[in-house]
Write a protein that binds this DNA or RNA. Structure first.
Lengths: 202, 202, 202, 202
DNA sequence: TATGAATGAGACTTCATTCAT
DNA sequence: TATGAATGAAGTCTCATTCAT
């Protein structure tokens, strides 16, 4: 699936790409020269480790997604009750809101990188793995909600997951358009999402 | 806001761009030659009507969004009760599901074209206009739900809109990942969305 | 040699080209559209009267040269003594000083349009005709100087013409670089030229 | 003023441009492809060293002018008396007669590159430096003529320089139009120029 | 006759990739 | 192994010329 280990150079290059993306670069218009400079390696070196620009960017994005997924799961798991876990997820979104290629943004919108990024073909088998890890996280969250008797509904797992995901999508929409919602602060937006979740699962 | 009228050539070019997008072309890597061929006009002709490739693509996308918005509103308005209106909206999404730049996909995910498409700077003032028309549609939908006593909740308009939008985002997520949900057919997915809406607004 | 008569449209086009040149346009980068606009005719009309852009510009320059030659000869001939004639020639230069393609500038520098303007091949037979008219003018000037006993030298006609031409070249150089000669005003520069002519022909 | 040192590639490109000009190419219509081919480098390489075609041509012309100025000064200075120096200058002109952009041709006619070549904006500060070096050369020539008692006139330095320059312009005109002066050979034309100088400065 | 909308050849320029060092 | 100078394919855009009106 992924050997998980990268050489120092590969990591330097990934971090260069990620830096560029975080600084607003567009993955379609970023150049190899820019990646080389941001990575602190020579242009030729990139081709020692990757066979094309597309491969560099694809693998860097997947690396970024894995890191973000790991991080998000760790943070959510560190909380010990349904509400805290849920709010923690929203907080992560706030912290990454301007991150066009954040895992969450991507998973919720198209759900498929190849639509946004035609390059990513060979690597796509990793995506379902991330999705599945996120789904497990949601399942554990739901279980906790059930144990805490916040969730009482007898419904399919699909429905329950859907409620969580859709509330997160709503929050993402809020964060992406905060300037359009001047009378709703972030705290309030979170509360509304939580309220929807509780009502829809009750 | 927009003079709303275009020459035949401009429309041919817009339709060429829209065709390319619908056929899976990426707006970042599409070339002027491809646009010219898809539009059935000469390469030079494009520059008689637009001053740059960026302008062509930006304006074509905005044109597409306006058309889609008009169409969606007309279809939803043609229905006479809350449930039919809501399902009609979901049906439109199904019909456009592979449409990466559909208005709905875009409005729900980032809400801002400039994030996905850095080109669009000057034209962006049109976007809030589309958002506002969609919001009005949602408001009318909600009002009908209230009159039909499907909605009883006493909550802010923000919350009520959020519920609708988030349910649509959930449905979009379903449609975008249908192959991952083999045990849920489209009808069922719609029903789940509707259920969530009713519960969250009750 | 030249049928001397042009249609109104041809004249309009010539004057458009001349206007553009006088306003600083470069004959190599001027476009047919600019010529059409400056001439007040449609772009297609230009091709009704000329077979290519090169032909338009070539013929316009030759037309300009003929007009300038006619004008210069008439003005010089209107004066009745050697000194007045000579100064009149210099005055014409002052009035046209910023005119990169003035006949005089051209005749004195390279003497051949095809060096400056590779287009002009077919039309070049007209140039010797202008040169010859200018030479006749110089010869009449010299004769008058001889009659007025300003010129006494017994030398070849070549030498005498050369003196006049070189003094004019010197004046042209002055006019073209006036800002570099802040302590020499135009009057003084003319006087120096005249002095040189008189000394060299005495 | 100019760092005076260029990389091998830059020199190859300059020489490519100079070759093209010497072979009759027009600086306005020459293409980057032609320059690349004439220079023996790839088209892309040109843009590694210069930021635009205009810059390439401008800098190449200035490089050519500096080389020509150096060469002309060295040759004139190598002669030890007034007459030899003067004739040496004329000989250099003969050797470069078909050189449309020779420094001398340019300095004498318009005196300003920007009139002939609108590109040259930033580099123009070098031109006065060449002019001033030529003027110094002329001043030394005149001083020698004075010491040899060929020049006796009491006149301004402007007048004396003007006589030299105008005689050179006359010779340039001869060389440029040799085919029109079939009864005057080059030797004779030089003698006439020298005669004019001596008479005008006596 | 007069026009200008339409066009495609060809210009300049960028940049992914190679390869000699 | 690491590099960046060199390159040419391919991109955007211009404009001389055509031709239907």
């Amino acid at each position: 699936m992924d050997n998980n280990t990268y050489t120092d150079k590969e990591l330097a290059i990934f971090n260069g790409v990620i830096d560029l993306i975080n600084r607003g670069a567009n993955i379609y218009s970023v150049t190899v020269s820019e990646i080389a400079k941001a990575s602190g390696v020579g242009k030729g070196t990139i081709y020692e480790y990757f066979s094309s620009k597309e491969e560099v960017i694809s693998k860097a994005i997947l690396y970024k997604m894995r890191k973000e997924t790991d991080y998000a799961i760790a943070r959510v798991e560190s909380k010990t009750n349904f509400k805290d876990k849920y709010y923690e997820a929203l907080k992560i979104i706030v912290e990454n809101f301007d991150n066009k290629f954040s895992t969450i943004n991507f998973l919720l919108s198209t759900g498929r990188l190849d639509k946004l990024y035609a390059y990513l073909v060979d690597e796509e088998e990793l995506i379902p793995c991330y999705i599945s890890r996120i789904e497990s996280l949601i399942d554990r969250l739901l279980l906790m909600g059930y144990e805490e008797e916040i969730i009482s509904i007898e419904e399919s797992q699909y429905y329950k997951r859907m409620v969580i995901i859709s509330s997160i999508a709503a929050f993402l929409n809020y964060v992406n358009n905060r300037e359009g919602y001047c009378d709703i602060d972030t705290e309030k937006a979170m509360d509304y999402c939580y309220k929807m979740v509780v009502k829809a699962l009750n």
